[in-house]
Amino acid sequence: MSLIIKNLYKSFQDINLFQDFNIEIQEHTIACILGPSGCGKTSLLNMISGSLQPDSGDLLGFNSKTISYIFQEPRLLPWKTVLENIVYVLPDSISKKEKHEIALRYSELVELTDFNNYYPSKLSGGMKQRVSIARAFSYPSDLILMDEPLKALDLKLKLNLMKSFRRLWQPDKRSVIFVTHDIDEALLIGNDIYVFSKAPVLIKEKFSIKNKDRLLPSPEIIQLKNRIVDVME
C-alpha cells in the first residue's frame, strides 16, 4: 500500500505552489521531503492533515488515516505537566487508567520519566520537543507528519532527538512524512528522500537509503550527500 497524491493544484494569491503535482509515498517508511524554504512543504503537510484545502487534486489512501503531527514548535499546553500533555491528545475511547499508562511508557521512551510532573516552563527546548514527539507517537495514528521539528535546536540536541525518534519508530514502523530543508537531518532519518524544487513544486529526484544505522561521516552517506547537493542546486 502507498499514499498517493495526484494532480494537486494549490496557489496562494499569485504564487502557484503546486501545479499538477504528483507523489507516491510508501507506507511504513520515513519519507523525507527536502526542499528550500517557502517551497510549500508545510502547505503540503497541512493539506494532508486536512487543515488546508487543495484547489483541486486527489489525495488517495489518506482518508481512512488518523494523523498525528509534530510541529516546528512543541505546542505544549503550559498548564499541563509532561504526562498531562501526552494524555491530553489521547482519544476518549481509551480509559483514564490506560491513558496514564500510555503516557508513562512514552515519556520513558524519550527519557523524560524524571520530569513527568514538570510544567513546560521548567523544561529546556529540547525536552519540550521530546514531549511533543512522545505525544505524537502515543497518539494512535497511522501517519505522523513532521514539520521541521528540529529547526530551532543545536546540533547535539538534534542528534539526541533523532536518536529518541529512531528508538520510538523502530519497533512501531508507522508511516512518517518528515519535512526539512536540512540535508543532514534527511540523511539521518529518511528511508526515502524526495528533493523538492522551488514553487511550483517538482520532485527533482528521489533517493532511497537502505541501511538502518547510519553515521554522517560514513563514505557511503557522504557520497549520497554530495549527489543530493548537486540535485538541489
Partner: peptide, 22 residues
C-alpha cells in the same frame, strides 16, 4: 495560542474538551 488549537484539532480533540482544557 492558535497553534495549540490547531494541534488539538489535528489530533481530533473535541470542542468541549478544547474549551475546558485550553
Amino acid at each position: 495560542d492558535k497553534d495549540i488549537i490547531e494541534m488539538s484539532r489535528v489530533h481530533q480533540v473535541g470542542k468541549f474538551k478544547i474549551i475546558k482544557e485550553v
